[in-house]
C-alpha cells in the first residue's frame, strides 16, 4: 500500500532539544534515511532507548518508541523482540548507558544473536548529567567526576561486541551522513545482532573529541565489504592502536539467529498467538 516512503514518514513536528551542533542530530537524520532505504513500516518499527541525551531520540522519530531506564534498553528490547519478532527493533544507547550501567546486558545480548540493531551514541561523556567521564573516555580524561584524570582504561565497545559474538560490527561518525546512513542500512538488513559504534561529538562537554578532531583523525573505509574477514582478525584489528580511527564495517558473518532457533516462533509472532483456550491435560497427566 504505502511502498514509497520518505523521511517525512518518520519525522515528528517536535524539534529535538539537543544542544545546537550536537552529534545526535546527525544520528537521527541518518536513522530516518536508513529506514527510508530499507522501507521500514513505522508501525512495525520500535526504537528503544535508555536514558541520556541520545536516548531522547525516540521522541523525535515517528515510529513506536520506548525511552526506558538508564542501562536497560537492551533487556526491554529483547523482551519486545521476543513478543513480536516480526517488528524491526532498534536499540539506541549511549556510551554511559550501554557500556557503563548497562554493560552486563550489552555483553549477554550479543550471545543471543537476536535480529536487532544496537547503535551507541559514543561521545565519551555523560552529557545529560553535565559531562562526567564515561567508560569510553581515554585514560587520563579530566572531568568533574575525575578531576585528577581518570585512572581507568577505556572500554572498546566494538571489540567487546565482537568478543561476545555480535554478527555485525561497525563504527561510524555522526557527521559522515552518507557513511552512517549506509552502515545503519546494512546493519538493519543484517540478519542477526548488529552493533554500530557511533563517534559523536558532544559540543558542550567534550573539548577533546571535537568535530575538528574527528575530521582530521578518521580513516573512512570502503563500505562495500567488511574490513576484516574473520572474527579473530577483527578483534585484533579493534584492539590494535591505529594512527587514525577507522570507520566502516569491521566484521560481518551469518549465524543462526535466536529467532531461527526457537521453535515457538514457527506459529508466528507470540503476540498474534491465540491464548483463549489452552489445554493443560498433558501437564496434569505428568503429575498424576
Amino acid at each position: 500500500m504505502n511502498t514509497e516512503r520518505t523521511v517525512k514518514d518518520y519525522s515528528t513536528k517536535a524539534i529535538p532539544s539537543w544542544c545546537p551542533g550536537c552529534g545526535d542530530f546527525g544520528i537521527l537524520t541518518a536513522l530516518k534515511k536508513a529506514l527510508v532505504e530499507i522501507n521500514a513500516d513505522p508501525d512495525e518499527t520500535l526504537v528503544v532507548s535508555g536514558i541520556g541525551c541520545g536516548s531522547l531520540l525516540p521522541y523525535w522519530i515517528n515510529t513506536y518508541g520506548s525511552c526506558t531506564l538508564h542501562g536497560r534498553a537492551i533487556p526491554f528490547a529483547t523482551g519486545s523482540k521476543i513478543a513480536n519478532h516480526k517488528n524491526n527493533i532498534i536499540v539506541n544507547v549511549g556510551d554511559g548507558d550501554g557500556l557503563g550501567i548497562g554493560m552486563g546486558h550489552f555483553v549477554h545480548f550479543f550471545r543471543r544473536n537476536l535480529d536487532v540493531m544496537v547503535i551507541c551514541d559514543n561521545n565519551g561523556v555523560y552529557g545529560l548529567t553535565k559531562g562526567q567521564t564515561s567508560p569510553t573516555a581515554k585514560k587520563g580524561t579530566k572531568t568533574s567526576s575525575t578531576p585528577f584524570g581518570s585512572i581507568e582504561d577505556y572500554v572498546n565497545g566494538a571489540s567487546l561486541a565482537l568478543q561476545m559474538g555480535a554478527t555485525f560490527v561497525a563504527r561510524a561518525y555522526s557527521a559522515d551522513a552518507p557513511g552512517l546512513t549506509e552502515i545503519m542500512k546494512q546493519a538493519m538488513n543484517h540478519n542477526g545482532a548488529a552493533f554500530v559504534d557511533i563517534l559523536q561529538p558532544c559540543v558542550t562537554f567534550n573539548k577533546q573529541e571535537t568535530y575538528d578532531f574527528y575530521n582530521k583523525n578518521i580513516d573512512k573505509n570502503d563500505l562495500t565489504a567488511p574490513i576484516c574477514s574473520s572474527r579473530s582478525e577483527a578483534i585484533t584489528f579493534c584492539n590494535t592502536p591505529q594512527e587514525k580511527i577507522p570507520t566502516g564495517i569491521i566484521f560481518q558473518e551469518e549465524l543462526p539467529t535466536y529467532e531461527e532457533q526457537v521453535p515457538q516462533f514457527k506459529k508466528g509472532p507470540l503476540a498474534h498467538q491465540d491464548i483463549s483456550q489452552i489445554d493443560v491435560t498433558d501437564f496434569m497427566e505428568r503429575r498424576s
Partner: peptide, 29 residues
C-alpha cells in the same frame, strides 16, 4: 516451553529478567 509455545530466557541477572518481561508485556504478550 516447547509444549505450550512459551519462550523462556535464563537472563543474565534479575534486572535484565524483569526489564525483558516488561518489554514483552509492553509489546502485547
Amino acid at each position: 516451553s516447547q509444549n505450550y509455545d512459551i519462550v523462556v530466557v535464563h537472563a543474565e541477572d534479575e534486572i535484565s529478567a524483569v526489564n525483558m518481561a516488561i518489554g514483552a508485556g509492553h509489546s502485547g504478550i
